[in-house]
C-alpha cells in the first residue's frame, strides 16, 4: 500500500517545528507502524536527508518507549496497543496519516517525534519504590497477599510509563500514571507501610513538573495500551486524602 504521511519535524527542543509530507511506498500490511517508518527513513537516508527521529526499544509492546500521536490518537487507532504493535493493516492504501509527538509542557519535544519523559522518572524517584533491607531472598508466600489485592496490584503494575495518558488528556494530566504506580505499590503489604509518604511525595512531584489536573473525562483510560482504569485515580484521591489527614 502507498500512504501519505504528515510528520512533525523539529530539529531540537529550542527550534520550532512544522509538518512535512512524505510518501510511504510499497508498505505491506504485516509491517508494524514503526517498521513502516523504518522504510520511510531508509529512503530518506538514501536521499541524504535526516531520518525521522522516533523513540522505540523492545518493539513488543512491553517497554513503554515508543509512543506517537497518530491521527490525533496516542498509539493510533487500535485499543490496548502500543505504537510498535500497531500494524499497517489498520490503514488502507491512499490514507493520509498525521504523525505528531506527545504534547505536554512537562514532555518537551527533543527532536521530531521524541519527547523528554524524564518528568516521569522524577515522579518515581519521589516515592515510586519500596524500601527493603538487602540480604537473602525472602521465602515465597511468607507474606500472604489476598487474591483481590494481588489482582488489582497486577492491573496497576501493567503500566509501562509510556505517557499516552498525558498525551491524550486535554489537561496533560499525569494522574493515571501516578495513580497506577501509587496503587500498584500501596496494595501490597511490602509497599503499604510507606504509602502515606509515597502518595504525598509523588503527587507533589507530579504537580511540580507542570502536569495538569484530572477532570474525570476518561481519555487516558481509553488510550492506555495497558488498559489501566481510572478507578486507580479514585484510589489515589482516597489514599492522598487519608495521608494528608494522618501526616504533615
Amino acid at each position: 500500500m502507498n500512504l501519505t504521511l504528515k510528520v512533525w519535524r523539529q530539529k531540537d527542543a529550542s527550534s520550532s517545528g512544522r509538518f512535512v509530507e512524505y510518501e510511504a511506498r510499497n508498505i505491506i500490511e504485516e509491517m508494524s507502524f514503526l517498521e513502516m517508518l523504518d522504510v520511510v527513513n531508509e529512503e530518506l537516508v538514501a536521499k541524504g536527508e535526516d531520518p525521522i527521529a522516533f523513540d522505540h526499544d523492545c518493539r513488543e509492546g512491553i517497554c513503554g518507549t515508543c509512543g506517537i500521536v497518530i491521527d490525533g490518537s496516542p498509539h493510533g487507532p487500535w485499543d490496548a496497543t502500543t505504537t510498535c504493535q500497531l500494524h499497517m493493516r489498520a490503514f488502507k492504501s491512499g490514507d493520509v496519516i498525521t504523525i505528531e509527538p506527545w504534547r505536554a509542557k512537562a514532555f518537551p519535544v527533543i527532536r521530531d517525534l521524541i519527547v523528554d519523559r524524564s518528568a516521569f522518572d522524577r515522579i518515581i524517584q519521589a516515592g515510586g519504590f519500596i524500601s527493603v533491607s538487602t540480604g537473602g531472598a525472602p521465602d515465597g508466600n511468607a507474606i500472604p497477599v489476598s487474591k483481590d489485592d494481588a489482582d488489582m496490584a497486577m492491573d496497576a503494575a501493567q503500566c509501562i510509563g509510556c505517557g499516552a495518558c498525558v498525551a491524550a488528556c486535554k489537561n496533560a494530566s499525569a494522574m493515571l500514571f501516578v495513580s497506577a504506580k501509587v496503587s500498584h505499590l500501596g496494595l501490597l503489604p511490602q509497599g503499604e507501610v510507606e504509602q502515606d509518604r509515597r502518595v504525598l511525595n509523588m503527587v507533589r512531584a507530579m504537580d511540580a513538573e507542570g502536569f495538569g489536573n484530572c477532570t474525570n473525562i476518561g481519555s487516558c483510560e481509553a488510550v492506555c495500551p495497558k488498559e489501566i482504569s481510572v478507578d486507580f485515580i479514585g484510589r489515589m484521591n482516597r489514599d492522598y486524602r487519608r495521608a494528608l489527614l494522618r501526616n504533615e
Partner: peptide, 13 residues
C-alpha cells in the same frame, strides 16, 4: 500544562 495542541482535534471518551 498543554501549551501546544494537536493538529487534529479528536475527542476521546
Amino acid at each position: 500544562a498543554r501549551p501546544v495542541d494537536y493538529s487534529t482535534d479528536k475527542i476521546v471518551a
